[in-house]
Design a protein around this nucleic acid. Structure first.
Lengths: 226, 226
DNA sequence: ATCAAAAGTTGATAATTATCAACTTTTGAT
DNA sequence: ATCAAAAGTTGATAATTATCAACTTTTGAT
């Protein structure tokens, strides 16, 4: 049985893991930063100096290969936090991060994060559990690339991006992403992506508004995934 | 720069995370179990009842798709431990596990593992760090599937399997895996795998002994990965 | 040591996907 | 509102990979 939750992380708020005392420490130490569209937050191989919490806009996490092609590993939205894993592991960032839109983040410097991590046993345990859950999603995503065709991966990606771009207020989801980024997310060529989008348009499953994509019949996308 | 460590987990011993007191508790509660070749330890969707530590042989972790094809996500060897993630997350297993060889494992029941986890702060923190490191590996593996050709993935897999099948005593590595499993590990068809192995044989990079594969010039495999 | 079954291999071909080039539409600065 | 640049789209074709069928080698039980 196909279940979208197996392929996309549930958003879980960073501050939920904190006691009210810890939360006020967090608020004291965190800094608000704005990034313009296309701004690169950090690059693969660099060392994290803090944790980001998205307040507004979308941030893509990606890997570049030596030919210049990039593959997008995840897209974070409002409320999501990231950048803490390499910091805990004391490893360099395995990925780069860049703003898709104009974005606003809260930035918690490394020292403050580690101080919270070390003083709070509940945070460590909460993170273990979160990481364990995330693992399932990553394993599933990995098998998608080996077992699904491009058309299937695009159908799945439309559903995932519907979640990412969903605005609680609105029922209709408008996915605002350029074709290169979408193709990098699916792991295919831009032209192959466009051809498949055309197919879904002909089937009246999606429509476009300018370069934006409107998902009209998500149920019919499910049908492509068994 | 290509670095094999980005694509395969370092083995880390479970017992290293434990104090001597905890270790004796572990030894008291753990049970030795033997599995015959092809025995299925658990299936995707089931709930873990304990943690496995491999003592002898190899165990494959895989996902089956509805068409019956399977894709192998990881191969564990002597000293590796697995099965604790879904247990911590209280999620069903995202994958199945089966013995490739005749194997021997230590089995630590859920209650004993959770008791260790809850009493030991160092274990929780150690696991967070291990999980964080593992994440980098998974992200890298995922991008391999989107950016590497079948030939490149096979070259990489030969290097990874060299690590898995490496016997400390011997310099020469003999990979003893059947072609279906190898193909599932690479994410390709068995025939495509065989044709590429033939290519590497013609180049004198590998040789075969019966159905076993001998990696003779690992450096030349690196050359296929830039 | 024999031999049937299982596993591995090869060739021919089909299906999928990427690449290149030309063209159209959209965007955003003025 | 205009218009050049950027982004998106389409068609033709090439490259990669999967599938099917026939055949060969290896394995493991006797």
């Amino acid at each position: 049985m196909f279940n979208l939750e197996n392929y996309h992380l549930k958003s879980s708020s960073f501050s939920d893991a904190l006691s009210s005392k810890e939360l006020s420490y967090f608020k004291e130490k965190a800094e608000r930063i704005e990034f313009k569209k296309k701004h690169i937050l950090f690059k693969e191989g660099s060392f994290s100096k803090g944790v980001y919490i998205v307040r507004k806009g979308k941030i893509k996490i990606y890997k570049s290969n030596p030919n210049g092609a990039e593959s997008i590993v995840y897209i974070y939205k409002k409320g999501d936090y990231f950048g803490y894993r390499p910091l805990l592991a004391e490893d360099p960032n395995p990925v780069s991060a860049a703003a898709i839109d104009n974005t606003v983040v809260s930035y918690l410097p490394k020292e403050a994060f580690l101080s919270l991590f070390n003083r709070s046993d509940t945070l460590a345990k909460k993170i273990v559990i979160t990481l364990s859950q995330e693992f399932s999603v990553w394993i599933n995503k990995m098998t998608v690339f080996t077992q699904f065709s491009v058309k299937e991966r695009i159908a799945l990606s439309l559903l995932i991006l519907s979640k990412v771009y969903q605005n609680n207020a609105e029922k209709k989801v408008i996915i605002s992403i350029n074709r290169d980024d979408f193709a990098s997310f699916v792991g295919t060529a831009k032209e192959s992506l466009v051809r498949n989008l055309r197919h879904f348009k002909d089937e009246k499953i999606i429509s476009t508004q300018g370069t934006k994509i409107v998902v009209m019949k998500p149920d019919q996308l499910h049908a492509y995934l068994l």
